[in-house]
Structures are given as structure tokens and as C-alpha cells.
Simulated assay, not measured.
Amino acid sequence: MTIAPAAALPWGEVWGQDAAVETLRAAAADPAALAHAWLITGPPGSGRAPLALAFAAALIAQDAGDEHTMRQVLARTHPDLTALRTEGSIIKIDDARAMATRSYLAPSAGRYRVMVMEDADRMTERTSNVLLKALEEPPERTVWILCAPSDADLLPTIRSRVRVLRLREPEVDQVAQLIVARTGVDAAVAEQAARHAQRHIGMAQRLATDQASRERRDETLRAVLRVRGISDVVEVAAQIVAAATDDAKALTAERDEAERASLLRTVGIADGARIPPAVRSQLTALEDDQKRRATRSLRDGLDRVLTDLQSLFRDVVMLQFRREGDTINLELIDDLRELAAKWPADRTLTVLDHIAETREALEQNVQPTLALESLLVTVVSGRKP
């Protein structure tokens, strides 16, 4: 598989999805092959959003040589593109309603008006119902593109109104090749990052380029392997939450400050100057959005920890069934073999089941430390509390 050059507009940022690209190229070129609503599904890191934007650019541009329009769409600045993504836990119903209303406008400059909704799986049932009529009876020159990990993440009424395009998951060596090409990191570091990220391209790139992230992951897994009693459970659960919190802050703090400075510059307030009452409400609204993003970032960080723990105990159960060829955590292979020999397979499967339940509990806003303590008690005892 080859890596497309970045200049190959609009598909240059799409990697490893040749069949999907060909399907969408054909649809953009032939109105008879174009469905009015699409759902692009694939595992995290498979490139759903870049593919959706590339498809939008191909639809809006007047022809294959219209690079200016394509660049506008890819930058999310073209007037005929409406792109919605959320950094909160759910998509707000007001945002979905505004998007549905905008979908009825005729395109102002391009061939089509395109509505891209990332994270469509974060719609509640009530929010999903807002989109139903817009998806069922869109104007002739409006195309919807939804993105989600799986079509099962959306209501059946939504699924029945879209054409589903499923993306493939790249292999570890393919992700490593891409990371080397993008960042220039050592091939061994890229391979380890791709393996630890379980082929999630974005996470693999972060692990490959951020030594602190690699160290936090390694420390967390080794700490869980050392858990022996209740005192360890309390300590390690607190350690995991603290590490996820620090990770979330590292991802959001710089952006938060840049957004605040940008807002103050926009309204003409110098650094250190008194903020007038008329601007305080705008700052408060921005801070509220940033708090929601921080909450989501922490939840995503904890989910990544659970994904790493899942990979750890998945390796153990694979060793118990004498399948060592595709071990994810090769750096811990001696510890994994020791655990595989000491535990029965059903105990490992119990831990894996509890990891999945912990993920669901965190999505329901269960206190993170308590959820992780419960999970680690299962690791220690082999039984769910």
C-alpha cells in the first residue's frame, strides 16, 4: 500500500482507504451514483473525518482542477460546507437543529451544499430525531455525511436513511510506515507506537512523538501488574486518574490560553487590561466550553487507559491459548508469560469483561477513581466486587 502525496487534492490526507476513496470519487463524479446521505464508519483512528472532508471537497468543487475551493473546504471555511464536531460528551440538540435548518439552503458557490457531522454517535435519541426529516427529504443539491465508529452506534431510523461506507483497519506496519513518513521518527519507535496504539493513527503519532506519553503508558501498565492488595488498588487507581488528568491538561491548557487571548484581541482588549462587563459574558461562555472540553478530554484519557489495560489482558489470554504471534505489549512479555501461567483463562476473561463494564460506567459519569478501584479489585481477586 502506498502513501498518497499531500498535494493530491482533495484526497491527500486520506491514507490506507483506497477502496473507500474510489467509491467516493465515483459518487462525486456521477450524480446517478450519489446518495443524498452517507455514513462513514470505522474504528478510531481509521480516518473517518479526513475522508468525509475530502469527499465534501470533491462534491463542492466545480471540477478536479478547482484547488482553491478544495483547500477552502479542507480548511472548513467554504460557505457551502457545514461541519459539526463536538469536544463535549454529546452533540447539543440546538447545534443539530441549526445544522438541519442550514441544510435547506441552496449552495452559494459550489456544486453541492455538504453537511458533515463528525461523532454522530454522540447524538442522544432526541437529537437524532431532529435530523430525521432533513435526512429523509433533503434538497436536491444537499449531501449529508455522518461519521461514527459503527452503524450500530446510530438509531435504526438514521441507518435506514443513509448509505453506509465501512473503512478498513490498517496493519501495524502500515501505520508505522505512515508515522515515519509524517514525522521522521525512528522506525523502531514508530513500530512500537503503532503496536501500542493498536493501529489508531492519531494515537500512534502522539506516542511516537511524545516520550512523556510513552512513559505514562508504560508506568500505568507496570503499576497494574504490581497490584497485590487493597492498598495497592487505592494507590494505583489514584495514580491512573492523576496521569489521565495531567494528560488532559497537557492537551487542552495551551489551546485554552490561545483561545482566551484570541477573544481578547478580537474585542480590542490589551494584555493585562481590565475586562469590561460587556466582554465578561463572552469569556464566561468560552470558559464553559473549555470546561466541557476538559471533561471530555479526561474521559477520553481514561478510555485510552482502559484500552491499554484491555490490550494487556488480551495479551495474557492469547498466551494462555498459546497464541504469541501478535502480542501488543512485547516489552512486558516476561511479566505476561508469568501471569498467563499463574492465572486460569477464565480469570483473565473476567478481568476483560470488567474492563468493558468500567468503560460503560465512566460513560455514565461514575466517579473515575471508584470505577478504577472496582476494576483493580477484580484484577487482584479474579472476582467482580
Rank of each mutant, 00 (worst) to 15 (best):
E125V: 07
T77Q: 13
A187G: 01
N365F: 15
V73E: 07
T245R: 03
A33M: 12
P31R: 13
D232N: 08
A345P: 03
I3A: 08
E125Q: 12
A176V: 12
S46M: 06
L9D: 07
D95C: 06
I93N: 07
I201S: 11
W144S: 02
L221H: 02
R314T: 01
H36S: 04
L135M: 09
E136I: 04
M117T: 06
L221C: 08
A64Q: 15
T183I: 06
T86H: 02
E87G: 13
T69L: 12
S108F: 08
D247Q: 10
V172T: 12
L376S: 01
R71L: 05
P385K: 11
R274S: 15
L178A: 10
P44D: 01
D186H: 13
G184E: 12
A176E: 00
I333H: 10
A8P: 01
V227M: 08
A64R: 15
R280F: 02
R299P: 02
V366W: 04
K133W: 03
A193N: 12
T266G: 05
A37Y: 09
I40T: 00
G301I: 02
Q192Y: 06
A29K: 14
I60H: 01
E118A: 14
S89D: 09
G184R: 11
I60S: 02
V279N: 10
L51Y: 06
F55L: 06
S231I: 06
V162F: 07
T252S: 08
R113T: 09
L330Q: 15
V379T: 00
P344D: 04
V351C: 00
V224K: 00
K291I: 09
D94G: 11
A253D: 13
T284G: 14
A148L: 11
Q205A: 14
R166P: 03
A49I: 08
A238Y: 00
P156S: 13
Q367H: 13
S128V: 10
L24A: 14
E254W: 03
M70E: 13
A98Y: 03
A61P: 00
D63Q: 13
R71F: 02
R293C: 12
L339H: 01
T209C: 15
A208R: 05
E136Y: 01
D326L: 10
A33P: 01
F55E: 08
V234F: 04
A193G: 10
R214L: 11
A120S: 13
D308Q: 11
E13W: 03
L376C: 08
P43V: 10
R314H: 09
G16H: 10
A250I: 00
L372C: 09
Q177I: 09
G272N: 13
A238M: 06
Q367D: 10
A100I: 09
R337L: 03
I240A: 07
E125P: 10
Q198C: 02
A37W: 13
R347A: 02
G202A: 13
R76C: 07
Q192P: 00
T101K: 12
E191K: 15
